[in-house]
Design a protein around this nucleic acid. Structure first.
Length: 651
RNA sequence: GCCCCGGUAGCUCAGUUGGAUAGAGCAUUGGUCUUCUAAACCAAGGGUCGCAGGUUCGAAUCCUGCCCGGGGUGCCA
């Protein structure tokens, strides 16, 4: 049962006498700010009194008189300017908690309106190794999928991989020109990644050589503009702002020159690279041509593509396996490629797409930028693919909801995409589940010192290695000596390390940018996955030491009782699990669930300190505490599972 | 130029859509292992919620202006 929802429903009934819109005001029932205000509080009397022009305290009293909560709450209290404070009855809370003991869903009701939801997340480029930038989409998308599925929705996870773009032209070019056959035989994916980087680097080099004089000229001009502006004697209103913007432009241009120079130096300082660069002056065009040939159905390139794809997909799967993430579908760009011409033709036929500067565009009122569905050179772009994808998901997958877990920087693209799809006649619920950028400590998108992004696998390895040290040190320090064998320690390290990384991404409000920090991410103290995993392991440890069979306990004669405040607080938290799951799903925000789990584990830790379980002499109280312990373990485990985080029986 | 997002404790972040004395974690300082795992617990210090106005019973939250940072902005995804 969702207690919060139940209370709101009761309020809605009572409020019908006071307003035409009882739902809105009933939604102002919330968990109480602090224990001194009871368990829940209703804040609806004040705004409602404003509408009526009456006294809020008196109105609160009238609402209370209409309210029927006698089966679950003590008498409501009106406090302060008109708050209505609610306290759940202890015996009702016992019954509630106890009913969870035999409930596999831990009180979470299955949805009454199941939807057919496609969750689109992760979506890496298969030609490049995954890096930290892919983590947020992957981890958040997986968590949301698990939560929605648990709530009873039909969820299809779809990895919309980049498997058809220019990066494949680079690989094909590299394969034809630079292949190290031995390396390819040994580790094909690593060799393909090397080829990609090499072609990329050489293209950048030539572009840099061409670009440098232009950049230098631009910096020169910007310097002059700036010094002219600085020399103005009678500055007007916008002067300071213009100066600032000029300085910013100059800084950007200067930095761009430095980057360009570094790219040049990286090649020129290496005789082998220099040789390659000289031998392939038109490498960028060459790579583009390979892409074009692939797209045109060239036999050789198609064969190469078919040869590379399984290897690239295997490499991705290795990472997903380790993360415990599964996709129902992996339909990338290539899957939609045959449908693109028809998409544009249809948009044209319906009068939605028109030509502008040679490109086919859909114009959406209120937006300056057009939505370009076919470039002037005739090629299709990701807008075309995304439209084809929507049509496919509606017509073939019968999706009524689509969630796109994608970086918030693509907000405008999705705004135009959704608007275009709707004009086109596809009107499922479409949401851009946006998340902020991962930044380095310099507040710029995260890179290593060399300028490369951090590989995902090395990040996982590092986290697991660190977790192993901590797990081993803690096991060694146990009062009765170590308990874990080597293999178990490694399993624990894997669960802690991977869980920690996921948690680090999930516990932040997804819309904030956040600063990536090894120490924060690998930390295992405080508000981390380890804290919850440890609490879970402790619950299991108690039952194990007490030789208590959970099945027997759950179906036995034990009844809950509260002898200490910590027991009541814990029981209340456990009963609020459905609220946390519902809130996380409603707002597509896993951090609402992590926050709940952290609080639950915190209540358990307090309980653990104050309420001995196995040593309690009163048998009925001991069994009551055992029930709480078992229930806590189940809630934490289930909650973590919904986040894609595993647990261990012993740590 | 236009558009979007952000600015909360030394650091990293919450803040339930306008509610009661602004909260966590890390870091710092002190206390707690002969008692079910000290990966924990208890306590302390730490704040001009970017700045200035406004709206009202009540503002970190809504409105206006300004300052600072990030991002996007017609053919990359």
């Amino acid at each position: 049962m969702n207690i919060l929802q139940t209370l709101r429903d009761r309020f809605a009934l009572a409020l019908a006498d006071f307003t035409d819109d009882p739902q809105t005001f009933a939604a102002m029932v919330r968990p109480a700010q602090g224990a001194k205000f009871g368990d829940y509080q209703a804040n609806c009397a004040m705004p409602l009194a404003k509408v009526h022009g009456t006294n809020p305290r008196e109105l609160a009293a009238s609402i209370v008189s209409k309210l029927d909560l006698s089966d679950l709450c003590d008498a409501p209290e009106v406090a302060g300017p008109g708050f209505i404070n609610l306290s759940l009855q202890d015996d009702w809370l016992w019954e509630q908690s106890q009913s969870l003991a035999s409930d596999l869903r831990l009180g979470v009701p299955a949805t009454e309106q199941p939807r057919n939801i496609v969750v689109d997340f992760s979506s890496p480029n298969v030609a490049k190794p995954m890096h930290v930038g892919h983590l947020r989409s992957t981890v958040i998308g997986d968590a949301l999928s698990r939560i929605l599925r648990f709530l009873g929705h039909q969820v299809t996870t779809d990895n919309h991989i980049g498997d058809w773009g220019t990066q494949f032209g680079m690989i094909i070019y590299g394969y034809k020109q630079f292949l190290d056959e031995q390396a390819y035989a040994d580790q094909p994916v690593a060799e393909l990644a090397r080829l990609y980087r090499l072609v990329n680097q050489l293209s950048d080099y030539h572009a840099a050589i061409e670009k440098l004089p232009i950049l230098e000229q631009r910096v020169h001009e910007q310097r002059e503009l700036l010094s002219d502006a600085e020399a103005v004697e009678q500055p007007d209103k916008g002067h300071k702002k213009r100066l600032k913007s000029l300085r910013a432009d100059l800084a950007v241009a200067t930095e761009s020159i430095e980057t360009t120079k570094r790219n040049i130096a990286a090649v020129e300082s290496d005789p082998q690279l220099m040789q390659l660069a000289n031998d392939h002056p038109n490498i960028a065009r060459g790579a583009r041509d390979e892409t074009a040939k692939l797209h045109a159905g060239d036999v050789e390139n198609t064969q190469l593509w078919e040869q590379f794809m399984p290897q690239c997909l295997n490499a991705l799967d290795a990472v997903y396996d380790r993360l415990g993430i599964h996709f129902d579908l992996t339909l990338g760009e290539s899957h939609y490629q045959p449908m693109l011409a028809n998409v544009v033709a249809d948009l044209k036929a319906k009068g939605l797409a028109t030509e502008s500067d040679g490109a086919m565009c859909v114009f959406i009122a209120g937006n300056d930028a057009p939505f370009i569905v076919q470039k002037a050179d005739g090629a299709f772009n990701y807008a075309t693919t995304d439209l084809a994808t929507i049509r496919y998901r509606v017509e073939e997958l019968a999706a009524d909801t689509m969630l796109y877990v994608v970086d918030s920087r693509q907000g405008e693209h999705f705004k135009l995409l959704f608007a275009t799809a709707e004009k086109w006649g596809y009107t499922p619920e479409m949401q851009h589940i946006k998340f902020g950028t991962v930044m380095g400590k310099d507040r710029k998108p995260y890179k290593t010192r060399s300028g490369d992004t951090v590989g995902l696998e090395s990040l996982l390895d590092e986290a697991v290695a660190k977790a192993y040290e901590i797990a081993a040190a803690n096991d060694d320090a146990k009062p009765d000596g170590p308990e874990l064998d080597e293999q178990t320690r490694q399993e624990i390290a894997e669960v802690m390390g991977i869980g920690g990384i996921k948690y680090a991404d999930l516990h932040i409000n997804r819309e904030s940018d956040y600063v990536f920090d090894w120490d924060t991410m690998l930390n295992m103290k405080g508000d981390t996955a380890t804290y919850m995993q440890y609490a879970y392991a402790r619950t299991r440890g108690i039952l194990r030491r007490g030789e208590i069979d959970p099945e027997v306990l759950r179906n036995g004669e034990a009844t809950l009782q509260f002898s200490h405040e910590a027991e009541r607080q814990l029981a209340l938290k456990l009963c609020q699990f459905p609220e946390a799951v519902a809130a996380a799903a409603e707002e597509s925000r896993p951090n609402l669930l992590t926050q709940y789990l952290f609080e639950t584990a915190g209540e358990f830790s307090t309980f653990y300190e104050h309420c001995p379980v196995l040593k309690e002499e009163d048998e009925s109280l001991r069994l009551s505490r055992c029930l709480l312990v078992d229930l806590t373990g189940r809630v934490i485990q289930q909650g973590l599972e919904l986040l894609g985080i595993q647990t261990c029986e012993q740590m």
